[in-house]
């Protein structure tokens, strides 16, 4: 028991300051985003539901790094949740495969308004390496209204978090 606590004390703070997001990393897409942010009281508390619509799991590895002590998304009020009922943000990765198309739509319907849809990674934006495959129904945009697009294959954890926060802040000010 004390071994763990001693180790905590020796390690010190592991969290790195967040690099500011570069403008090339993300785009705001939806008109709806500003209204959503207003109803979410400025977005200081965001519950994120991750939806893998057919991703290669590259993006998932980067997203799961967000909860690690190094990136610590919780310091910005960003919390990964287990249920779409709790979600404010749907973080969708991967091209939307035909098998996951209905599941993605149902997840969207299960989330309460106001909700923000984020397409995360190049596959989610335009199908990426999987575009045109017979198993792929299209990009996330073809299935759901997307509010924020995050580029990268896969995007770095700091880029995902930075882009999400920067987009929310910009939409909140606009």
């Amino acid at each position: 028991m004390f071994r763990i606590l001693r180790r905590c004390a020796r390690t010190g703070l592991a969290t790195l300051p967040l690099e500011p997001a570069r403008d090339a990393d993300y785009e705001l897409a939806g008109e709806k985003l500003r209204e959503s942010i207003r109803r979410l009281r400025g977005g200081r508390s965001l519950y994120v539901r991750e939806v893998d619509a057919g991703s290669c799991n590259g993006c998932e590895i980067e997203i799961s790094a967000l909860t690690s002590p190094v990136y610590d998304a919780e310091r910005f009020g960003v919390h990964v949740t287990a249920s779409p009922r709790h979600a404010d943000v749907l973080l969708v990765t991967g091209p939307v495969t035909r098998q996951m198309e209905l599941a993605l739509k149902m997840t969207y319907e299960a989330a309460p308004e106001p909700k923000i849809v984020v397409a995360c990674g190049d596959c989610a934006l335009d199908g990426g390496a999987f575009a045109g495959s017979y198993a792929v129904a299209g990009a996330v945009e073809d299935v759901l209204p997307v509010d924020i697009r995050i580029k990268g294959c896969p995007p770095k954890p700091s880029a995902i978090l930075g882009a999400l926060l920067a987009a929310v802040e910009r939409a909140g000010k606009a």
Partner: peptide, 28 residues
Amino acid sequence: KAVLQNRLGAPVVQPYRDLRKLLGKEEV
């Protein structure tokens, strides 16, 4: 707990922000 995990952690007022946001949300 966050400090003991070598994290920065959420500000102590975060639960109030969460509650305020949830009170303004739609119910499904």
